[in-house]
Design a binder for these strands. Structure first.
Length: 492
DNA sequence: GACCCGGAAGAAGG
DNA sequence: ACCTTCTTCCGGGT
């Protein structure tokens, strides 16, 4: 996982960004990305014994010993030799990968490494246990330790550790008054590497329907079917009424916008932050959260949290509505939101992406690219008003959908949001010649393509005729929200 | 002048 | 090398 910290960006201050709420309204990952700015806290040592030894493991080793290669096993053994003053281990006895080594019993290990078997066994068991916890909790996390190096152990390559410590152990001038909130946030994230911004709950947990069970779904129609609420963190509908004068709250609150929905179920006032990550992940409340929000075996992709729509969703769905002075729902049910402070929001986005020259013009260009893939549309006649056309769960799946580009029609046009039959002609491509184009095609099967050479050329004089019709009873997610769309194609 | 649109080229990361 | 997702710049329209 690359997390190039890059140069330290100017932390928004009253001088540089007078409208920005301070501290940074970003995910703790931003603190990780720019650790120099928070050195006082990032230098905190690991707080749990587990973290202690983990942080000393070779950085090349994945957290889950079961994914280690032979070389990794040897590397681990050599490290253990040094670390625990073990008797020299005969590496020939460990010509196996990590999975095989984990299958060895304590006795097996003792036989192969006389005098060291107990230690090795204990360490391995701890690592496996830890990996199991993380894996169960964050099945779709980009850093779920299912592959090598995806989850480095070094505190310098493993953001959560410093973040956690930074937040759970005082010494944090930056967020001291909100440490509990952030700690809760991090607790919910467990040992994942939170990107910047951290994925919204949906994108991180990958199963918003679990949150839906506990919350009223947002986006009315968006939640139809199996999809869940908008980013899962809409634990309150009150912010719908807060606009436009709710911006004041944004000046004070400081916890990150990507607060997981798991946390939203636990009011901060009632939440006692764990003393350490280990305690956090092993605490009953965490296990409950994990069960609720991080079900195992989620195949859904992670958005990495760096996507603009995700960023906006996080701000919009901030449980504490801290960013309503930047962006706020006008109608959450329909996905309509307004950018209250275009310049400020653009700056936030720019900071998130480390493009400090970001402005609304550029950001809005990015937003306009969402038009063609029906993620977003402009609310006509209202300045700075846009509408999400897909819920976060769908958006999260864009990557998957994109993979279908080769198989699906790459030229299927983006249907118009108007609830009427729209006729348009698009240019066919060979790939779609074989398709049964007469069938009704569910809108959501359309590939989502953000690429610049997408199916936007409607000027062609080719022969495909597209009719977009409304269907009231299809599980689509088109706009307007109460309407669902199908694409009816027919070759002329 | 601000906002909005979309084309074009390119950067950055996967 | 290719793809995705922007970022940057721009000309044009409202």
């Amino acid at each position: 996982m690359k997390l190039a910290p890059g140069p330290l960006p100017p932390i928004p201050t009253a001088a540089t960004m007078d409208r920005l709420p301070l501290p940074l309204p970003f995910s703790p990952d931003l603190l990780w990305r720019y650790p120099l700015g928070f050195s006082n806290v990032t230098q905190q040592p690991p707080s749990s014994p587990l973290m202690d030894y983990k942080s000393q493991l070779p950085t090349s080793l994945a957290t889950d010993p079961r994914v280690w290669s032979r070389e990794d096993v040897i590397s681990f053994l050599r490290w253990a030799e040094r670390e625990y003053d073990l008797q020299p281990i005969d590496m020939d006895m460990f010509q196996m990968n990590g999975k095989a080594m984990c299958l060895l019993t304590r006795t097996d290990l003792s036989e192969r490494a006389p005098g060291s078997g107990d230690v090795l066994h204990n360490v391995l068991q701890l690592l496996v246990r830890e990996a199991n916890i993380v894996q169960r909790c964050l099945p779709s996390s980009p850093v779920t330790p299912t592959s090598r190096h995806a989850y480095p152990l070094s505190p310098h390559s493993h953001p959560p550790t410093p973040n956690w410590n930074m937040l759970t152990q005082n010494g944090c001038d930056f967020h001291s008054t909100h440490a509990a909130t952030l700690a809760a946030h991090l607790m919910a994230q467990s040992n994942s590497v939170t990107l910047s911004p951290a994925p919204s709950v949906d994108s991180q947990a990958g199963s918003p329907q679990h949150a839906e069970a506990c919350q009223q779904p947002a986006y009315g129609h968006f939640s139809s079917g199996s999809n869940g609420s908008a980013s899962g963190s809409n634990q309150s509908d009150s912010d719908e009424d807060s606009f436009p004068d709710s911006g004041k709250s944004a000046q004070n609150n400081t916890s990150p916008p990507n607060t997981p929905s798991a946390f939203t179920l636990v009011p901060p006032a009632h939440y006692m932050p764990p003393k350490s990550p280990k305690e956090a992940v092993s605490s009953p409340i965490f296990k409950t959260m994990a069960r609720e929000f991080f079900p195992s075996e989620s195949p859904e992709p992670n958005t990495n949290g760096r996507l603009l729509w995700d960023f906006l969703q996080q701000l919009l769905n901030d449980p504490s509505q801290r960013y309503t002075s930047y962006i706020a729902w006008k109608n959450r049910d329909t996905g309509v939101f307004k950018i209250v402070d275009p310049a400020g929001l653009a700056k936030l986005w720019g900071i998130q992406k480390n493009h400090l020259s970001m402005n609304y013009d550029k950001m809005s260009r990015a937003l306009r690219y969402y038009y063609r893939v029906n993620i977003l549309r402009k609310v006509q006649g209202e300045r700075h008003c846009y509408q999400f056309l897909r819920n976060p769960t769908e958006l999260k799946n864009i990557k998957n959908i994109s993979l279908l580009r080769q198989q699906m029609s790459p030229n299927r046009p983006a249907p118009q949001p108007q609830p009427q039959v729209v006729h348009m002609t698009i240019k066919p491509e060979p790939a779609e010649v074989d398709q049964d184009t007469s069938r009704l095609q569910e809108f959501d099967e359309k590939p989502t393509d953000l690429s610049m050479d997408g199916p936007t050329d409607l000027s062609s004089n080719s022969s495909r005729h597209i009719s977009i019709v409304c269907s009231p009873d299809t599980p689509s997610l088109r706009d307007p929200p109460q309407k669902n769309f199908y694409i009816k194609e027919e070759i002329k």
